[in-house]
Design a protein around this nucleic acid. Sequence first.
DNA 1: TCACAAAATGAAAACGTTTGCATTTTTGTT
DNA 2: AACAAAAATGCAAACGTTTTCATTTTGTGA
Lengths: 355, 355
Amino acid sequence: MQTFSFCDKSRLMRYPRSRKGAPGIVEVAARAGVSIATVSRTFSQPDMVRAPTRLRIEQAADELGYIRNRAAGALHNRFSGTLGLVVPTIDNAIFAELIEAFSSRLRDFDRTMLIAAHGYDLDLEVAIVRSLLERRIDGIALVGFDHAPVSMNMLRQRDVPVISVWNFRDVSDIPCVGADNVAAARTVVRHVLDRGHRDIALLFPDVASNDRARDRMNGVLDELHRDGITITPDRLISCPYDIGEAKRLVRGLMSGPGRPTAIVCGNDIIAHGACYACYAEGVRIPDDISIVGIGDFRGSAHLEPGLTTIRMPARRIGNIAASTLVEMSDTGMPPDPFNRKVEIELKDRGSTIAL
Amino acid sequence: MQTFSFCDKSRLMRYPRSRKGAPGIVEVAARAGVSIATVSRTFSQPDMVRAPTRLRIEQAADELGYIRNRAAGALHNRFSGTLGLVVPTIDNAIFAELIEAFSSRLRDFDRTMLIAAHGYDLDLEVAIVRSLLERRIDGIALVGFDHAPVSMNMLRQRDVPVISVWNFRDVSDIPCVGADNVAAARTVVRHVLDRGHRDIALLFPDVASNDRARDRMNGVLDELHRDGITITPDRLISCPYDIGEAKRLVRGLMSGPGRPTAIVCGNDIIAHGACYACYAEGVRIPDDISIVGIGDFRGSAHLEPGLTTIRMPARRIGNIAASTLVEMSDTGMPPDPFNRKVEIELKDRGSTIAL
DNA sequence: TCACAAAATGAAAACGTTTGCATTTTTGTT
DNA sequence: AACAAAAATGCAAACGTTTTCATTTTGTGA
């Protein structure tokens, strides 16, 4: 699988096809009877050229079907007009909203998005960052704070604007836009504790190299500790962000002896799986068991009963991240504020009950 | 050292920041004691340079932290190493798998992905295509067959490899990789008809400028017609790809007079909403009502009962699309076969019952 | 109408690679 | 060891813009 005949392909690739009917700035200039400098300005700084001239040029460009080559410009002025976004995964409700918001906000600035997913593999992230740097992105957004030092060094050396998205920290090496995951976890656990639950199961993914999950986990444990509740190993269940796996694990939990009264899930994906498990086992939510998630993904509001969870404003994060990164790229300055926290909100929808 | 002028932003952007400690091919060549040509070849065609030389160069590059500038190369040989993917939406389970597969397959070929979503707005699609062309993408994948002529003309004039993904047609202007949506719809409706259902409600989105939905709708109507079943207007419900909306509409349908015995949904998102509606209304699936979807999205298998639907191999489509596009870009030839159909499969999971 | 400032335009030098062709070095054969 | 052939390397001309600086044109007030 990994052994593609790279040689053959890259060799073929060396022979450029003719550019066919693709006119450049030179052709436009000739047709409009001006110098190429004026054509260039017409597209990059329109108000520097007199209206009649500009019109003539625009018409010529239209007639020829001219499309400017930003790569050529980038070569000269170092701005590619492309920003990078690196996420753990695209294919998992979690980041879909973030991605779409980021991308669509970039368009408002006439920028485009290069995106890649590393599947929680930091080595792959390094390769991705390198690949993005080869494309001379004007800035890059990375999810979270856990990154390979070599990635960060490459970015620092190149002086590329970087921003961490999704998670929030008061102090950090790189600017961030995100939600306080510790607080999110605390809030939702507090909600459960306030309703008298003491026997609580936790379903969380592996927290190594995932600072969001780690923060949530810490928030949960800390809040439980505050109420003097200790979690026994059999109540601390490791579960990937996968509906099927979550469902399987919770079915086991439900059919086993000594069912907990509440389940706190690392995110809404897991919570959805937990709900499905209860449907399957005939366990009533919230009468027989309370379930909470974190994230408020698409669909959470419409489960039956609605899932009580923490709303994370993914779109807002994506929008702010895009604007901030563009600004950093334009000004060459760090953003102000350096660390940006977005609000979270408890959505109490009825998947919990007071004992 | 460049001084910033304090004018408006667009002016600021024009002044490049110094490139700081970013070495180019020239620095690497100097340090390794070779010409820049040899350095270039070391990275683009390694087997053209003798091993000892190559090693020396690679070491020099490492020490300097050199990262090649593909934009510069692209300028010369017309290959940016970047492919475009244009989807209606990123944020909606539908295309997430496709996107991720496409992107990760491109990485195997050392290519990157520029992606953009147009939200079913063909005018926006035109702007996006233009923007991608300004970045000189080596090829582009578009979802479906409904596109603005002006988009297609731009692509044709530039001779950019184009491929249509997701849907399949026997004959088409541009090559395609996708599933037969007509057949998918036929299959799932046949499944319902075979179980004796005659009073069937359809929940489909607006089919204008959405050939996938149109094909499905046509497949459904045709198959119903074959059995002499006519759909009255109140059984033909327009519903966007949105869980909440689907749930609302189906709750109305369930609580109203004369409930149908089966619901055929335009895709699994709608079907999920329909299921939630039934949970909410206490309508049992499949005993009281049969529900089928199309798409087999993440989660469909784990609903209770599992959703009977048509599996669309999104990953496979993404993988094939990426390979095909890279091949088209490398060879300059149309793919063979020109139209590629991926298999679909009925997943009978128990959300239907025989009357 | 003229002089002068301001605005618009043009000429040409970058930007950092790739590649055709020329030259040098290596390899293989006798 | 000599020579031819093959392989490796170097030279320099692109690639299509942007931008600086010089030049021309336009606008303004006397």
